[in-house]
Each structure stands twice: as structure tokens, then as C-alpha cells.
Design a protein around this nucleic acid. Structure first.
Lengths: 349, 349
DNA sequence: GATGATTATTGACACGTTTCAATCCGGGTG
DNA sequence: CACCCGGATTGAAACGTGTCAATAATCATC
């Protein structure tokens, strides 16, 4: 990257480098891609020429010829969500070790944008992609496979090995852990604050909570009430406060399990404005353990997902699919972990 | 994207589409790129063939031939920071309107990674890029220009029009607004909690604060104390609490202006653990107005940057540079706005 | 119906790289 | 000295697309 005197000369190609080094284009290509095959002396000549001319390879040419590009996609549900950014770090680190570049794409929770992005990956002949699908309909992903671009699904348990690889966290176990924790603290009226049940993860977390009740010989129907909001964000959590408190102090839940930290944080804010104290009056558990969970007061008890590891192992899986032609699809499960902070406490009556 | 019966046939190219439609490859290319030049009837035939064969264009081929690719980069300082994700939304929306794809790259605040990513963009012959430079050294960006890839710097005021376009927020005005607010509330001992002064933005915010003092006939040296941490994150904010409170209640600041919301939130947590009340004992102002600023209790008063608009106008600038060959570099400034919440209150003595 | 003016379409080439069979070279072996 | 072997290098042929001058088709005009 040293200042080149020949700024006028556009298109410094492999051929010009070759001429400059007194060597054939093929050799330059070898220096670039399989340096071990070329003799020490010529390699040095070529490298000198590359530096001299400030040559940078044209990846269009190379991936056109070789049929594959050296970058992988990471198609994320929502760049705004801190959960995904941690995952991204994991993917990037692992990809870097394989010499692959990561391009991050955002579907913003919209099916149509996911579609557009998958198409883009196909057009670019991406080596592969890690993807968090917007919903259960995987047909566009199947299409992508047929186009020759392999993928690994992230955070979706319901991908069969027939279709593709997947990495996910056991949402049922997460709901179970949250439920056990609350029940262990003596709570018997628990509200599940959630988004749409069309989201698979949400259903699993709910089921985990119900099973925790059954385990403790509590009737799930009497113990758990569901408050449903259209989206999983903080504003909706705040708005839900009336529905959560409905029925007056007698009926009011002793604890709320939120499908999401954002919901939980919004709810906590709403409760604070109503003068309801956490955890004295109501215990709260969130899900995801975002960084901010530790910054609010009281700290938010939350079910933590191994975000970084999730991304890392998804990319690892993709890598192995790329290397090994006789690859069989795999399914990797992670177990979430409850992080207890100040927002949950024993029932007081 | 309809299920294709001919999954075996790899490499469905423009030529095969042409044959299938009984037309020449050039015509297919025209249908794809300048549909207006081709007659209605033939266009329909070609489109039918495309659908039938499930053809997807190979962008390597196209950008190899045309010398430019249809995607722009967005090189971000840290994907983890919510500030940047908002910016990203703005960039994406604007790019979508120009039919450009955005690839998001992350330099993770590391000069070396920034360098690698810029190189990647050059290799891909990206149409252009929006970049938030990691530091004042713009030489790698100059190199990128020489390679023929234009860029727009974001959030850096110190880019001269000689070198490139830039979009930034007036950090001095932000510091000034924060200072005026605190001084207006009667505070006369103010701590500036910050990261390294090597960051241009931080210096400007500091200077704004000092100028607010001068304006109010307060001696800046006596009024403002600086507490400096190695990084601008929440953990550092929490760790700074001792330094901030040093000197006992007499010397203790009446207000703290933090260079960053993360620092502010960390500090608030630390203060809460020490039993110091916000805003009764100490007022706090943050910077960036991240979403979470509204979720903590009390809400964090913060200097808001027009994040989305920032990204959007950077991309707009880049777009105009791409379209207009006789383009002159431009410098766009935004003004930040103070959002007052519960963390600041009038001095009590 | 011939002519010229438009509009549609065609063909062939070039973009920069990788690949692979063919060639070259130097040295060890019989 | 002829032979061969293996490693280093070469040359030419693709890869899939866009471009553009050249040709073909269409149409309006006289």
C-alpha cells in the first residue's frame, strides 16, 4: 500500500505484474494462491512487482473463473438487536481463521428482505451463508441450496437434517429453568409476557414454563397467564403493563417471565412509573441476557444464550461443509443458562 | 424462484437462457440491464425463459466486465454499539432506493481490521463505501481512492474536502448543549467522564463543555474536572465511580457529563451500589441517546445524534458521487439535540 | 412500392483470473 | 553421454457477462 507513482495507470492486472516481473501470468497466479509451488527466487521477484505496482487482485475475475467466491454471508434477523451482534462476532472470528470474509446482511424481520438477500448471495456465488430465518417457511433456503450455496441455520430448532445444518439453543430448557427458578422462590401466579406465538422459540419457552409447573405439581392453567404483544421490543413491554397488572393486587402476578429482555426492560420501566417495585412486589425474568440486563437497577435476571459460541460453531459447521464434499447435515444444540440478578426474589406474603 | 425440475444442470448462464428463448445472449443482457431497449414481446419470451430455467445472474461476470460491482460497503467501528446499527439502517434504506446492496463490515476499533476490510472492498471493486475511520490517520482511505473506490467518511469532522466527502455531527455543539443544561441547573462542579483524548469527538465534546463554562463566567479550570478511562464502555464507567467520587462529599461533583451513554449507564450502576442517588445527589448527562437511555431509572439525559439521518445522508452523498463524474467533495454537518430525562435535576444545597 | 429513418437484435470480443496439459531445465543414474 | 525424473514455468483456453459496431426488421413517407 505504498504511495504509487503511477496513479494514472488504471487496471493493474495480473498480466501487467507478470510482464513487470519478467514472468508468465500463470506464475503470478501461483504466487498468489499456491506460493509453495513456486521457487523462492521468482516468488520474491513477483512479490516485488506486486508491491511496486500496488496491485490488488480482482476478486470478480477470480471467483468467475473458480466458480466460488471467498466470502460467506451472515443473514441476520435484525442488526439492531444486541443479541445478533454478539453472534456476528463469533461468526467473524471463526471465518477469519478460515480466511473467509463475512458480509453481514440484514433482513429486518421481513420475509421479503430475507428473500432479496438470499438472492444476492446466490448472485454473488457466496461460498456459503449462516442465516437466521425469519419464519418457519424454509423454501427460499431450499432454493438457495439448489443453487449450490450451502447454509447453516441459526437459532431455529425446527430444521430437519434433511434440509440443512442448524445450530440452536434449547428454548424449552430455558423456559424450564426460568420456571423452576420462579417456582422455587415460591411464586404461584406467573405471567408469561410474550410476542406472537408464531415464533417457534417463543412457543418452546412457554412450554418449558408450563412443564416446570407440572413438575412442581402446580396446575399450569391456574398458575400461568399469558399476555401477548404484537412485537418483542421495549415499547411493547412498557405498553403491556396494564394487561400484566389487570385484576388488581389480589389477582396480580407474583412474577413475570418475559420472552425477551427488551420486553422485560420495557415492562420494568412501566412498573416503575406505576410505583410497583421490582422485585418486592413482582419478580421479573428476561431472556437473552443482553449486556444492558446488568446495567438497570435492579439487575435483570435472565436466561443467557451462549451468543458468541453460537455464531462461532455455526460458522465452524459451515466451514466443514465447505471442505468436506461427503458432508452430512448436522444439528447442534446448546443449553442456555439462567443468570440470577436482583429482579427476582422470594415471594413475600 | 419456483421449484426447478432441472436441478442437475449446473451453471445456467445467460447463453443458455438465450438459446432457450431463441434469442441472442446480448438481448438477454439487455433485458436484464436496459429493459426499455428491447421489444415487449421478446422481453416476455426472455423473462419466461429466465423463470423456467431458474436463472440467477452471476455478479462476478457482470462486475468483471463492467469494472464495478453493484454493492457498497459500510465499514463500521463496532457492530456491537447500538449507535452504529441505527446508522446502518439509514444507509441500507437509502442504498436500497438506488438499487445498491450494502455489505456491512466491522473493524472492531482495530486499525488492522479496518485495513483488511478496505483491502477487501478494493478487491471486490465495490462501487463505493461509507466508512467510520478508526483514527485520524486517513492514509489507507487515500489509498482506496487511488484504487478507484470512492468513500464518504462518517462521524469524523476532520476530513478535509481535499480528501473526501464527510458527514458528521457537531460534537462541540453537543458538549456546549450539555454544559449549558447543567450550568443552567445551577451546577458548578462538573466532572467530564471520558475515554482517551486521542478520539477527536471526545476532544470536541470536552471543549464544548469548557466553552459553556466560559459563557457563564465560570472558570473552566475550577469548574470542570476530567476523569479519563481507557475505553468508552459500561464496565469502564462502573469502574470510574471511585475516581468520580474522590475527595469526599465536599469536593464531589454535582454533575457528571459522560462522553458516551455506555459510560454513563455504567457509572449510574456504580453510583447506585454506593448509595449515591441520581439525580438528587448527582446529575448525569450521557451522549448518543441510545435506546436504553430511556429504559433505565431514572431515564438518562443524553445528547442525541440523528443516527438514522446520518447514515442516510452519508449514503446519499456517496450516491451522488457515483452518479456525477464532476463531483466535488462535500462536508455535511448535523446538529445534535439534548434530550432531557430524569437523570438531571436542579442543584440542591 | 421504393426509400430513408428508426428501432430491435445480433455477434464477437474483452474483462482478469484460474487451471491444466505441455514444456523447460537441471541434476542424478545407469 | 544418453536417459529420465521431478520440480518450475509457461500458454492457451475457459469462466459469464456487458458493450458496441454492424446488421436486420419495422415503419412512415412520398
Amino acid at each position: 500500500m505504498s504511495p504509487s507513482p503511477r496513479a494514472s495507470r488504471r487496471t493493474v492486472g495480473i498480466t501487467e505484474v507478470a510482464r513487470h516481473a519478467g514472468v508468465s501470468p500463470g506464475t503470478v497466479s501461483n504466487v498468489l494462491n499456491r506460493p509453495e509451488r513456486v521457487a523462492e527466487a521468482t516468488r520474491r521477484k513477483v512479490e516485488a512487482a506486486i508491491a511496486e505496482l500496488d496491485y490488488v487482485r480482482n476478486s470478480s475475475g477470480s471467483s468467475l473463473r473458480s466458480g466460488r467466491s471467498g466470502s460467506v454471508g451472515l443473514l441476520v434477523l435484525d442488526v439492531t438487536n444486541p443479541f445478533f451482534t454478539e453472534v456476528a462476532r463469533g461468526v467473524e472470528d471463526e471465518a477469519a481463521e478460515s480466511g473467509l470474509a463475512v458480509v453481514l446482511l440484514n433482513s429486518a424481520e421481513q420475509r421479503e428482505r430475507q428473500r432479496r438477500n438470499l438472492r444476492l448471495l446466490a448472485e454473488q456465488r457466496a461460498a456459503g451463508t449462516v442465516v437466521m430465518p425469519v419464519d418457519d417457511d424454509l423454501s427460499d433456503l431450499v432454493w438457495l441450496s439448489r443453487q449450490g450455496t450451502p447454509w447453516v441455520a441459526l437459532d431455529r430448532g425446527d430444521v430437519s437434517e434433511e434440509v440443512g445444518c442448524s445450530v440452536s439453543v434449547d428454548n424449552h430448557a430455558g423456559g424450564l429453568a426460568a420456571g423452576r427458578h420462579l417456582i422455587g422462590l415460591g411464586h404461584e401466579r406467573i405471567t408469561f409476557l410474550t410476542g406472537p406465538f408464531t415464533i417457534e422459540q417463543v412457543r418452546q419457552r412457554h412450554r418449558g414454563l408450563l412443564d416446570a409447573c407440572a413438575e412442581a405439581d402446580l396446575d399450569p392453567d391456574e398458575t400461568v397467564r399469558v399476555v401477548q404483544q404484537p412485537q418483542l421490543n421495549a415499547a411493547q413491554g412498557e405498553r403491556a403493563v396494564d394487561a400484566v397488572l389487570a385484576g388488581g393486587p389480589r389477582q396480580r402476578p407474583q412474577a413475570v417471565f418475559c420472552a425477551n429482555d427488551q420486553l422485560a426492560l420495557g415492562l420494568m420501566k412501566g412498573l416503575g412509573q406505576r410505583g410497583v417495585r421490582v422485585p418486592e412486589d413482582i419478580s421479573i425474568v428476561g431472556y437473552d441476557n443482553v449486556d444492558f440486563a446488568d446495567l438497570v437497577h435492579p439487575g435483570l435476571t435472565s436466561v443467557a444464550q451462549p451468543k458468541y459460541e453460537l455464531g462461532r460453531s455455526a460458522m465452524r459447521l459451515l466451514g466443514s461443509e465447505l471442505d468436506d464434499p461427503g458432508h452430512r447435515h448436522e444439528r447442534v444444540w446448546f443449553t442456555p443458562e439462567l443468570v440470577v440478578r436482583g429482579s427476582t426474589a422470594a415471594r413475600r406474603t
